[in-house]
Amino acid sequence: MRDMIAQINIDYDLCQDPLVCRGCLTVCPTVVFVCGPTKIWKFRETDTKEYKVVARYIDKCSGCGDCEKACPTGALKLGFISRAELRDRFRAERAAKLAAQQIQE
């Protein structure tokens, strides 16, 4: 089990046309990123500008930094956080969600 987990922040003011750029999507050795449409239109194709890159498979990131180097606008920042810290954060999130559900019931 790894000690450190990637925290990949993407500034969407700078990352504008990811499907045309494809920088991080192409270079990542472990396919951490996914790029999906932000809005589903009916009866027309989505514009590439309506796509958004997110770092989904963060548990696969080795931290090589190729994505940061490939990003032409400097939108992508790669950092790391200790697994234990992230574990506690996600546990807290989950506990808060379950508590909210119980109140609703």
Partner: peptide
């Protein structure tokens, strides 16, 4: 699921 794994839950 990735979150749940990292949370070891």
């Amino acid at each position: 699921l990735i979150k749940a794994r990292i949370a070891e839950d």
